[in-house]
């Protein structure tokens, strides 16, 4: 066991960084679910696409440009997906939705391979964030601190929008009871569309943020999908609080599990998930109630 405090700070930051990356992904997925009862398995593919868009745009106009372009590019794809698939599948039941988006995963996997090739790409870390900062006596990469800060910022903005604005109240009303919300004169369909696009944009943003950290490969979306699903199932489908709680739990268990019990890290996660499902089938912070 490492007695050194610095070691624990370092691992704590690692856990937080992973949590924030997962939060960016899971919040979009979970709000889309809360509102539309729609689980989009292709959410991971949107993340991969965001990474590719950021890497490509970043090569031309620099990291910050890429970071800006990726969410819009992915949201634009989200519009297409919504119009072609999602809208028609709204009333089809969870199985058909799961399967259509399952098919989309493979379609988008091959499309990225056709467009960008099978070789891994990479996006450079911007010069501004290239160094390291000392925090609590520990040297930590500035870029990772940026990821943490961005995640927290997005969380703050979303909490503010959902909790304090009119559109947020409308979304909450839609999550609670969409037919009642429609009766109150809220254009539920328009709201769905808006939320879906924002969810896609957040997935794209997560991809863009992850690109300089990881390697950009066609299957990165498949790799991140299961952790994201675990986060939203633990946290409770449909709630912002659940997404942040699930992300933090996942990040901490995964990071410290990998360090302390390397053989059992992922078994630990699944064990935790099973326990949550048995004790609280709707997750820790379900949207309703």
């Amino acid at each position: 066991m490492q007695a050194d405090l610095g070691f624990w700070v370092l691992q704590g930051l690692n856990a937080l960084q992973l949590s924030m990356l997962l939060f960016l992904l899971s919040v979009g997925l979970t709000v889309i679910f809360g509102l539309m009862h729609f689980v989009n398995l292709a959410h991971g593919s949107l993340y991969a696409l965001g990474a590719y868009a950021a890497a490509t745009a970043g090569a031309a106009i620099g990291f910050w440009g890429g970071l800006l372009v990726a969410p819009f590019a992915v949201a634009a794809l989200g519009v297409v997906l919504y119009l072609v698939f999602i809208r028609r599948m709204r009333r089809a039941g969870p199985m058909a939705q799961v399967l259509v988006t399952f098919g989309l995963i493979f379609v988008m996997l091959d499309l990225t391979r056709i467009v960008w090739g099978a070789q891994a790409l990479s996006a450079p870390v911007p010069a501004l964030l290239d160094g390291r900062l000392t925090i609590l006596g520990v040297e930590y990469p500035a870029y990772r601190l940026f990821v943490i800060a961005l995640g927290l910022a997005i969380w703050g903005v979303l909490a503010l929008v959902l909790g304090r604005t009119q559109i947020g109240a409308m979304i909450r009303a839609g999550v609670d009871n969409d037919s009642m919300a429609a009766c109150m004169g809220i254009d539920v369909e328009k709201m769905f569309f808006l939320v879906f696009c924002v969810g896609c944009a957040l997935a794209g943003l997560a991809g863009a943020v992850a690109a300089p950290l990881l390697s950009v490969t066609p299957d990165m979306g498949l790799q991140i999908l299961i952790p994201t699903l675990i986060v939203i199932v633990i946290g409770g489908l449909g709630s912002l609080k659940g997404a942040i709680a699930g992300s933090l739990i996942y990040g901490v268990v995964q990071t410290f599990g990998a360090v302390l019990f390397p053989q059992f890290a992922s078994i630990l996660i699944y064990g935790l998930l099973a326990a949550v499902l048995i004790l609280r089938p709707a997750g820790l912070f379900p949207a309703k109630g």
């Binding site: 679910f33 009862h37 689980v39 039941g93 969870p94 199985m95 799961v98 299961i226 699903l229 675990i230 199932v233 489908l237 053989q263 059992f264 992922s266 078994i267 699944y270 064990g271 998930l273 099973a274 499902l277 048995i278 089938p281 709707a282």
Partner: peptide, 27 residues
């Protein structure tokens, strides 16, 4: 265990158990 949940929760719960088995043999 999963029989208590329905719809998407059932799908997710079974997915979790399946992946648990996958991790077990993988690791």
């Amino acid at each position: 265990v999963c029989g208590r949940s329905h719809g998407i929760y059932f799908i997710m719960a079974t997915l979790a158990f399946g992946q648990m088995g996958y991790s077990l043999v993988f690791e």
